[in-house]
Nucleic acid binder design. Structure first.
Lengths: 107, 107
DNA sequence: TTCTTATATAAGTAAACGATTATATTAAAG
DNA sequence: CTTTAATATAATCGTTTACTTATATAAGAA
């Protein structure tokens, strides 16, 4: 099998300090892009690119709400990615603005 | 905590197809460097370098026996690395020579 | 000691990575 | 329609990665 290729891809996706921090944030629930900029202390495009890698690997999912995009953990994970998530300490963050809170987007 | 740093290091160590294959071989027991050259189809120095990364990350251990070096999985693993190992399908390999079999080295 | 064998280290290189700045897209507001 | 705001994409660049070949190290054999 080359499920080992999928494994490599998923492991690559989580073997970066900033992407691990993104996942640590997402343990609390949905987060929008602007919040990550604060937490990671990198530029907005950098955050976008990291999110894309996690999304391409199937580790996170996105939800569009107006101009905002909210990201959340995929509830279905491979056992090894789930083990990584389980080990991560949650990171708290500040919502960047009123329109950006995920709660109001949940209908 | 920056156990997240250790996590990043260990995940980097296993997020490479050749190093995953090395681990898949090691599920069968001890393996010497020369065997990996056959399995991975890369040069001997390349194998040495991969093994060093896994060793530095604490994922494998080495045992010297004359001119040979045998590598094996560390029996103590973090939960997420263990989850990766559990998911790997073992890879069978040919012992490169009589002096290279791990069995005779076990006293 | 000298030769051979197994492995490690050094040096060089092409490709991948992760950031940046600049620009494009998309949707809501005025 | 124009402006503003949130996000994505493009182009660029310095760093890291993983290989290669060449050389060094270390141990057993002759």
């Amino acid at each position: 099998m080359d499920s080992v290729i999928k494994m490599e891809n998923q492991l690559k996706a989580v073997s970066d300090i900033n992407r691990l921090k993104i996942l640590a944030c997402l343990k609390q629930g949905e987060v929008c892009v602007c919040d990550f900029v604060d937490v990671l202390q990198v530029s907005q495009p950098a955050v976008s690119q990291q999110l894309r890698k996690l999304k391409d690997a199937g580790i996170i999912l996105e939800r569009k709400k107006g101009t905002w995009k909210h990201y959340r953990l995929n509830e279905e994970q491979t056992t090894y990615i789930q083990a990584v998530l389980d080990e991560l300490e949650p990171i708290s963050y500040q919502h960047c603005g009123p329109g950006c809170s995920s709660e109001e987007g949940v209908d």
